[in-house]
Amino acid sequence: LDFLMEHGMIQAVPDGLRATAFGMLIAKSNYAVQTAVRLKEFARSGGEVDMSRLIYEICRTPDLIPISFKGRKSRDPVRDRLNRAGLFVVDVGNDEATAATLMEWMDERSEYEIENAFNVYAASTRRAAYEASRLVKFHREICQVLGVYTGLDSMETLTARLYYGVKEELLPLVVGIKRLGRRRARALVDAFGTDLRYVSREELLRIEGIGPKTAENILKKYHSHD
């Protein structure tokens, strides 16, 4: 009981004990109490929300199965990737490898590229990214319960980027066009930019992987805004 009260999950009331909004949120989720406490403490750390730090905190929770290293090769590439994100760590283990992997996934690297760059078992990257996206959403809900509203929009963007494995500029396409996928979305943006309102059906069909049905879906989405 002391632990639950200390971390704001229950509170004393005149007729006994009652679950707080934070406690009820945990009860409705499938996440470990340790995960919720870590994310609550991060939410209360104050200042602007550092999304790279949030990813790292999520990777250190018991609810995200880590991506592990292969063999005994140098772990410096993972350390360097985290350093570029403003995260300076001394010991590099599987949690750090997972964070670096997710960052590269959002930069549209393939599992094969990630595995070669970091010497990790990257086959579970998609699953880890999906679970991480759900944990970001959970963290966002914790922030709302605590009355911490800074960075909520950025968290929503981060959730989508993890889920789809894309840079932010591709989100309107991968979210708005069903089953388009990040490869075809990237090909479209590389060819035409992010504004597809003036792209014709014939131009769309010249892009590898874009068939008549997908082209029609793209035209419906963008031309309906004219």
Rank of each mutant, 00 (worst) to 15 (best):
Y56L: 12
F3K: 14
R182C: 09
S133G: 01
M106P: 01
A27P: 06
R134S: 03
G47R: 08
M155D: 02
S224Q: 11
D95C: 12
E208P: 04
K213V: 13
I55M: 14
E131K: 14
T157N: 10
L170H: 11
H139D: 09
Y121C: 09
D95Q: 13
F22C: 10
V136F: 08
D76C: 06
F3G: 02
I142R: 08
D80Y: 09
I26N: 11
E6H: 01
K28P: 04
R72S: 12
A27L: 11
R126S: 09
D63A: 00
S124K: 07
P62F: 12
A122G: 02
D80R: 15
L205K: 13
P172I: 04
C143K: 15
V199Q: 07
E115V: 01
T20K: 04
I142A: 05
N83F: 08
A122N: 01
N94W: 08
T157S: 13
S74I: 14
A122V: 07
K178A: 11
T159S: 06
E108H: 03
I58T: 04
R79N: 00
E141A: 14
R140I: 05
M24P: 00
S29V: 03
K73E: 14
L180P: 03
V90R: 15
E57M: 08
E168T: 12
Y198D: 15
W105D: 01
K28W: 08
A12V: 13
S74V: 10
G16V: 01
G165V: 05
S154T: 08
S68V: 10
S29T: 07
N119Q: 10
A97T: 11
A122Y: 02
L196E: 00
V37R: 02
L152D: 01
S124L: 10
L170S: 04
L188M: 12
I114M: 04
D76A: 11
V89R: 12
I55D: 00
A128T: 01
G165Y: 04
K167Q: 15
H225M: 14
A36H: 15
A129R: 07
T194F: 14
A36R: 03
L171P: 04
Q11G: 12
M51W: 07
K70A: 10
I210H: 00
G211A: 09
I114T: 04
G151K: 03
R197Y: 15
T35A: 09
D2K: 07
S68E: 15
P212R: 12
R109K: 12
H139I: 12
R186F: 12
L219M: 10
F42I: 05
F118H: 13
E108I: 03
K70I: 15
N116G: 05
A19M: 14
R72M: 13
D15S: 03
E208I: 10
N217Y: 09
F42L: 13
T61D: 10
D226V: 12
D195R: 07
T159G: 09
R109G: 01
S45Y: 05
L39P: 03
